[in-house]
Design a binder for these strands. Structure first.
Lengths: 232, 232
DNA sequence: TCGCGTCGAACAAACGTTTGACTTAAACAA
DNA sequence: TTGTTTAAGTCAAACGTTTGTTCGACGCGA
């Protein structure tokens, strides 16, 4: 983590290691404490680099934040876009087979949930995204166009496929967002969920429980067959 | 603590007005910009009072924040607790009448939604609560025990009544939270919803649309009859 | 008179940023 | 090889500003 000074941790320029270390450290801190709650000194200390490195590599705290956003959007995009494409292809291929639709939906929801609350390493990503929801900065369009909108359209396609209504209809979009909210709710209100259930934190097993509950609720809401005990 | 019974806010001491002005101004600012994003100078300027008033009346910025939390919890409690009591009474009275259960549920959801996103004046409340979800301070227990848990238990009672399972079962609690998430999602991701639908902001009419979409989704998920076009 | 509340001014600490000297790796000439 | 140059990167120290907080004087009703 804290690389020894003087030597390049990776091939290429000497400073590439410092740059990435700053982004990684800043991601974790921004996600937990917010932009204003984090000082440049805290970031550089966590990254194990000199205080002046932020301004040298990024030009300032604000530009570092933007770099962090671009970094996580690239990561989300690599995960969500292929899944969204696959989902829409599966919906088209399913035709009227509601059981096939249900399975595609459940799989997509599982991926969204695990992206949000699954691995602890991925949690800062959700934290930053939710923070941009609550207090959009000028980096919000990057997130929206790079990741959120694609996921949202996929969810609208789900509702459209299950109900036969057009995916662009406002009520379909609203219902799609209601479904997204079910996933979001477990990310944004983690503290509440854990407190209610006596959990200290999410674990992979508990995330499976959450995913199962969300799948039950969503599939029932869409009048799709519930997930069978075993694959059909 | 912030209680006023027996005392009237204005006619009493000279400083009672200043105290409330500070709480009101701080609520709006904290909700939009977060604790660290707001300076004591901005608060006192917005409240139209002297800079030293915060420390005189509350002892510091942190204690002012706590007073704000206690203030909004009292407001939420006055709205949510009676509704939750009424809901559970209605559920008990409904017995096996699923249409009656559906109506009680829809009414409760509407109230929750309007509390979160309805009137613009009430929006800072949701903003602060969601902020405490994301970054719990030592004031979080006040919110949780004063408002959130009661609402959460009412939602669990809904799921229990609709499905016949015990309200304390973990999967029932999880599904209840999934329902809450549908409401939360429209508060936390207001920017996304508005962007997707070309809205500039929520209006009372649009909140009705949202409430209708949530009601459809939730009632379908609980296998309850959909809301009729007119009251039955 | 006293005590409460308000006010402008000032405080020390922390903030983001800048500076200039130093270190390092690679390129070039002999 | 050897010596020099060059540019990139690192570093401790300091910059000016803003932060939350404190202070002492002042106004006013009791």
């Amino acid at each position: 983590m804290v690389e020894l000074p003087g030597y390049d941790p990776e091939a290429g320029g000497r400073g590439d290691g410092t740059r990435q270390q700053l982004i990684d450290a800043a991601l974790g801190l921004f996600a937990v404490q917010g932009y204003d709650g984090v000082t440049t000194r805290a970031i550089t200390r966590a990254a194990g680099v000199n205080l002046a490195a932020i301004n040298y590599h990024f030009g300032g705290k604000q530009q570092l934040y933007r770099a962090v956003i671009e970094d996580i959007v690239a990561r989300i995009r690599g995960r969500v876009w292929p899944a969204a494409d696959a989902l829409e292809a599966a919906l088209a291929a399913a035709g009227g087979d509601r059981r096939a639709v249900a399975e595609a939906v459940a799989g997509f929801l599982r991926l969204v949930l695990f992206t949000f609350i699954g691995e602890a390493a991925r949690r800062p990503i959700a934290g930053l995204v939710l923070r941009e929801y609550a207090m959009p900065s000028d980096a919000f369009p990057i997130i929206y166009e790079g990741a959120v909108e694609r996921m949202h359209r996929a969810l609208a396609a789900i509702v459209a496929a299950a109900s036969g209504r057009p995916a662009e209809a406002p009520e379909v979009i609203l219902e799609a967002h209601a479904i997204l909210g079910q996933c979001l709710g477990f990310a944004v209100a983690r503290v509440v969920v854990c407190r209610r259930l006596g959990w200290d934190d999410y674990t992979p097993e508990r995330t499976e429980q959450v995913a199962a509950a969300v799948a039950r609720t969503v599939l029932a809401a869409l009048d799709l067959p519930p997930p069978g005990p075993a694959r059909g």
